[in-house]
Simulated assay, not measured.
Amino acid sequence: MAEEIGLFIYGIVPGDVEPTADAVGVGEPPGEVDAIRHGELAALVSEVPLEGPLGRPADLTAYQELLDGTAAVAPVLPVRFGTVVTGADAVADLLEAHQDRFAAALDEFEGRIQYIVHGRYEEPALIGEVLADNPAAAELADQVRGQPAEATRPQRIRLGEMISQAVELRREAENRQLLDELGQLAVATAPRPPSNELDAGAAAFLVDRDREDEFVDAVEAYAEQRRELIRTRLLGPLAPYDFVSAHQLVE
């Protein structure tokens, strides 16, 4: 029996956008990326087996690289990873049904790009500051230092709880400061939840292209002020993943 083929949708773009010849899609082997047009819109797609597995790290990388590369030259609405339809007619129907909504969203992202700023605490420096600010925690740390873990289990549990609470409060404050300092250079911001217990501030920023250099310089200054305590990473430019609202996404 012949394998049934579907279309993996990456994103919605203006109708005049053309995939580059070297664009690589998901799957093994990677599918050729094409644009299916309807009216003033187009969808970037590639063929995939309808029953084939998706979700390998290479697939996610291909998805992100295609969208980020597109966002560098044109507005794009990322479609949820793994969205597959049965054929070109289904794509055209989708574009027709949501044409006004997609067009308005693309206008919103014209000339704008996403950046993510992510900070992670340097653990020794963080613990040192927490203990310096909290005499009760410092006393517990003295009690357990050099002692057998089993003999000091209650104290270690309590110390861990106190440090965790202190880190959470610091993270909240760091996120507020991150958004206050850098948000004024962006047209929109989106806080991001922590992915690690040592995460500090993390947020996405939608930035006008004519302010990119100013934004990057501000991030570098922000990171330099905290370099003894926090390792700061700047990710981007990216497609506007964090700013495509639920009503704009293809579900």
Results as ranks from 00 to 15, higher is better:
48 V>C: 13
48 V>N: 07
49 P>W: 00
49 P>N: 11
49 P>D: 09
52 G>T: 09
53 P>L: 07
55 G>S: 02
57 P>V: 01
59 D>F: 00
60 L>Q: 11
63 Y>N: 09
63 Y>C: 00
64 Q>A: 15
66 L>S: 01
67 L>Q: 04
69 G>E: 07
69 G>V: 08
71 A>G: 11
71 A>P: 03
72 A>V: 01
76 V>S: 02
76 V>G: 02
77 L>Y: 01
78 P>Q: 08
78 P>S: 05
79 V>I: 14
80 R>T: 12
82 G>N: 12
83 T>V: 14
84 V>F: 03
85 V>R: 07
85 V>H: 06
86 T>C: 00
87 G>T: 09
88 A>I: 05
93 D>M: 07
93 D>S: 14
94 L>E: 13
94 L>S: 12
97 A>Q: 13
97 A>H: 06
98 H>Q: 13
99 Q>W: 03
101 R>P: 14
102 F>L: 14
104 A>I: 01
104 A>T: 07
106 L>M: 08
108 E>D: 15
108 E>Y: 00
110 E>D: 15
111 G>H: 04
111 G>N: 04
112 R>P: 10
114 Q>L: 08
115 Y>P: 11
116 I>A: 14
120 R>T: 14
123 E>D: 13
124 P>A: 05
125 A>Q: 14
126 L>P: 11
126 L>A: 15
127 I>P: 02
128 G>T: 10
128 G>W: 00
130 V>H: 07
131 L>R: 08
132 A>N: 01
132 A>Q: 11
135 P>R: 04
136 A>L: 08
136 A>T: 11
136 A>R: 10
139 E>Y: 00
144 V>C: 08
144 V>Q: 12
144 V>L: 09
146 G>M: 06
147 Q>E: 15
150 E>Y: 00
150 E>W: 00
150 E>L: 11
150 E>V: 08
151 A>I: 03
152 T>R: 12
153 R>S: 15
154 P>Y: 02
154 P>D: 13
154 P>E: 13
155 Q>P: 11
